[in-house]
Simulated scan of single mutants.
Amino acid sequence: MDTSAVNTSSVTVVGLGPMGRAMAGAYLDAGYRVTVWNRTASRADELVARGAVRADTVEQALAANEVVVLSLTDYAAMYAILEPAAAALEGRVLVNLSSDTPERAREGAAWAAKHGARHLTGGVQTPPSGIGTKEFDTFYSGPRDLFEQYEDVLRVITGTDYRGEDPGLAALYYQLQMDLFWTALTAWLHTLAVANANGISASAIRPLATEVLGGMGQFIDFYTPRIEAGEHVGDVERISMAVASLEHVVHTTRDSGVDPALPVAVLEAFRQGAAAGHEEDSLTWLIEVFGRRAAA
């Protein structure tokens, strides 16, 4: 395998789960010379058939190209794979699209620098089906000059959304998005469980669910300036109203024979707000409840 040519029209992709395979495929479609490596080598078969080069070792994968895209489960996987080949990291640009925490992203960037590599953190905002399109973005953070130098390479994967020099920022914005996504999706699934227990199908609930979730944007737009101003006036809704409403949800859930743990957890947060003397304030005051828990 010839590893002498290093240029920005070629990339290495390490990690060939569904996301990594989609990324490698996007680079092939864009005319890049693509080197791939995965612990289970057979995952590269389809990509090799399309023109990718399968590296026999991690060292070969790193040596092949300056830009190395990491699509791994987390940063622990990065260390497990790259530490034995750390001597080959000198001069590499690690585009780490693995999901993890902001602090681990910062630690990962420092670890890469210690071995002579530069690191960009990424947070991909699409499933594999959206890779190679401009409909979705990826959060990036790390050295601005590095991002700008390789932005054209990054845009092959998705659009780019640079968030700042701190390596942890892309991971932070990604986790903020996931916090909202998984919580909302879980709430929908719980709603379906209660509906199904009462003989109501997912299809019947679908238009109601999309209407409620679609309308959330209006609430977010309305409350954001108030929250930033520290105003939690209960002129639209109040914590006391929310407590009463969630109690009805919990009772309905129990009467349906469905696990009430999810709405009970939300109700507990509401009750804490009321117990703190803010029962007549807006539900937005719960930001203080959640923040105090973190401080404790």
Rank of each mutant, 00 (worst) to 15 (best):
T3E: 14
T3M: 12
T3A: 10
S4V: 10
V11I: 15
V14K: 09
L16G: 00
L16I: 03
M23A: 02
A26N: 06
D29T: 13
A30I: 04
T35W: 11
W37N: 01
N38E: 08
D45A: 10
E46Q: 11
A52G: 09
V53W: 11
A61S: 12
A61T: 11
V67A: 09
S71A: 12
L72Q: 09
L72K: 09
A76I: 03
I81C: 10
L82C: 03
A85M: 05
A85P: 06
A86Q: 15
A88L: 03
R92E: 09
L97N: 05
L97H: 03
D100L: 04
E103K: 12
R106C: 09
E107A: 15
A110D: 15
K114T: 14
H115D: 07
G116T: 05
H119N: 11
Q125L: 15
Q125P: 02
P127Q: 09
P128E: 12
I131E: 02
G132E: 08
T133Y: 04
T133C: 02
E135H: 06
S141E: 11
S141G: 12
D145N: 11
L146A: 07
E148Q: 14
D152L: 09
R155W: 03
R155D: 04
V156C: 05
V156D: 05
V156W: 07
I157Q: 05
T158C: 08
T160H: 07
Y162I: 04
E165S: 13
E165Q: 11
E165I: 07
A170V: 06
Y173C: 05
Q175R: 13
L176H: 10
Q177A: 13
L180G: 11
L180W: 12
F181G: 00
F181Y: 10
W182E: 01
T183A: 14
A184T: 07
A184S: 15
T186W: 00
W188N: 06
H190G: 03
A193N: 13
A193Q: 13
N196T: 13
S201L: 06
A202W: 07
R206C: 01
R206D: 13
P207C: 08
M216W: 07
G217A: 11
G217L: 11
I220Y: 06
D221T: 15
F222N: 03
P225R: 08
I227K: 03
I227H: 04
E231H: 11
I239G: 00
S240G: 09
M241F: 13
A242K: 01
S245T: 12
V249I: 14
S256P: 00
P260S: 06
R271T: 06
A275W: 03
A276P: 04
H278I: 02
E279N: 03
V289E: 13
R292E: 14
